[in-house]
Design a protein around this nucleic acid. Structure first.
Length: 424
RNA sequence: GGAGAGGUGGCAGAGUGGUCGAAUGCACUCGACUUGAAAUCGAGAGAAUCGAAAGAUUCCGGGGGUUCGAAUCCCCCCCUCUCCGCCA
């Protein structure tokens, strides 16, 4: 959530920053805010008088006054008047507040100063490339053909069990998936992340806090009977572990890694990536989540990206780092780097990790605060997260980049100990 | 699913209609004592909103109600715990 106070104090500057993303009309928010505050002044003055009356009557009665005394009767009548007026004001005030809140929830985060300005994908900036020398020189089978040929991936039967865009991993395929997960977790735990296995059914409040709701409801699977949703990413449950908490400054930074299945409806992606492991309704991911002191969040973000890169480097998979421009930035993000792995079947780099800094946007929506010892008041933490990595896409990259002329796959050295073999 | 108990400040835990934003303990801050620390003693200190400030309002799981006045009484919902049932 954006900071209403900041918006109010300097609407001009605020909308300039926001409009680097696209065009947003903040006028209705400012107007509602103004009305709401006026009403609030009126309401609180009446309430103050009512409180005084209550206090006075209490004192009199305890001092032995009779409730039927004329003086008390007058007070009681005045209080009843006030109560009637308040009863008219309150529904209005509630409605204003709700409308304001609903509007605020649809405004995306401000891009950070350093985020490049641009309209869309084409304006993203390549930051660096790694591992050109590992790009295969020969033309190989796409991973889904290879996987089906080897009998380690099965899409057809998965469609029977669920729908299209689901996969079943079989034999060495399942083992490879587990090995990748284990490898990723081992690396991230060594890098200082504390592993968690969170719920993957999550409530509406949690999705609202991290920014998936209310705007992107059609992206998630919902269990309507229970107000629960299937987690689209571990970002949601892990960040929400700390929702509505006041942490001690000394608790920060908090680093978590989490392996979870992720579920996405992929509404509106008909016809895109219809084959293979690239775009599924259910996939596995190892996620990195950080809650940090605002002063450190920029460095923490750089480190987070490096932690994700370390997995690709460990697997010797060629990749590049892209910084997203303002137009391509996710709803809640202030700054974001994507890691894109080389995918021979596509002849291009494909996203395999997205590492975002949300500043205090999610923390404000979820009320995740911290307190500096000895200081008054609280501050919002900064939240960050990134994939470390998307497991299915990593498997696709391994199968394609490590394919040999005879149709076998020579496993990356880092994975060999996990699988107890060199060739797949 | 059935029966019972409970949800109070960062944490623990009192409080059953009026001066309760709330005792007490822990943790926290400042001061004294000490070479320093610990221990001890004294003082301070909840959060949010509006306000330049003084101050005002709100907050005792959530929502409604009774009352001049609700943490406290009534209704609904959610959550946690215990027992029973079922189940991996």
């Amino acid at each position: 959530m954006i900071d209403l106070k900041q918006l109010r104090d300097d609407p001009q500057k605020f909308s300039e920053r926001l409009n680097r993303r696209g065009s947003y009309n903040l006028q209705p928010i400012l107007e509602l805010d103004h009305q709401q505050r006026q009403l609030e002044v009126e309401r609180s003055q009446l309430q103050a008088r009512s409180n005084v009356i209550g206090k006075v009557m209490g004192e009199r009665i305890r001092a032995g006054a009779h409730p039927q005394d004329p003086e008390l009767k007058d007070l009681r009548e005045e209080a009843n008047q006030i109560k009637a007026t308040l009863a008219e004001l309150e529904p209005k005030s509630k409605e204003l507040k709700a409308n304001l809140e609903n509007l605020l929830l649809t405004i995306p985060n401000l891009p950070s100063e350093s985020t490049p300005t641009g309209k869309g994908e084409e304006d993203n900036v390549e930051v660096r490339r790694w591992g050109d020398e590992y790009i295969p020189q020969t033309v190989n089978l796409p991973h889904w053909e290879l996987g089906e040929k080897q009998g380690i991936l099965n899409f057809e039967r998965s469609g029977k069990v669920a729908q299209s865009r689901f996969v079943t991993l079989i034999g060495a395929g399942a083992a490879l998936e587990r090995a990748l997960i284990q490898f990723m977790l081992d690396q991230q735990i060594a890098a200082g992340y504390v592993e968690v296995i969170p719920p993957v059914l999550i409530n509406t409040q949690s999705l609202t806090a991290t920014g998936q709701l209310p705007k992107f409801a059609e992206e998630s699977f919902q269990c309507k009977q229970d107000d629960l949703w299937l987690s689209p990413t571990a970002e949601v449950p892990v960040t929400n572990l700390y929702r509505e908490e006041v942490l001690a400054a000394s608790d920060l930074p908090i680093y978590h890694c989490a392996y979870t299945p992720c579920f996405r409806r992929e509404a509106g992606s008909y016809g895109r990536d219809t084959r293979g492991l690239i775009r599924l309704h259910q996939f596995n991911k190892v996620e990195l989540v950080k809650l940090v002191h605002p002063q450190t969040s920029e460095q923490e973000h750089q480190m987070l990206v490096q932690n994700a890169e370390a997995i690709l480097q460990g697997l010797k998979l060629p990749y590049r780092v892209i910084e997203l421009c303002t137009g391509d930035l996710g709803f809640a993000a202030a700054k974001c780097y994507d890691l894109e792995v080389w995918l021979p079947s596509a002849g291009k780099y494909r996203e395999i990790s997205s590492c975002s800094n949300f500043d205090d946007f999610q923390a404000r929506r979820g009320s995740i605060r911290f307190k500096e010892a000895g200081q008054k008041g609280t501050q919002f933490v900064h939240t960050l997260n990134g994939s470390g990595l998307a497991v299915g896409r990593t498997m696709a990259a391994v199968l394609e980049n490590y394919q040999q002329a005879d149709g076998t796959v020579r496993l990356p050295e880092a994975l060999q100990p996990y699988l107890g073999r060199e060739i797949l």
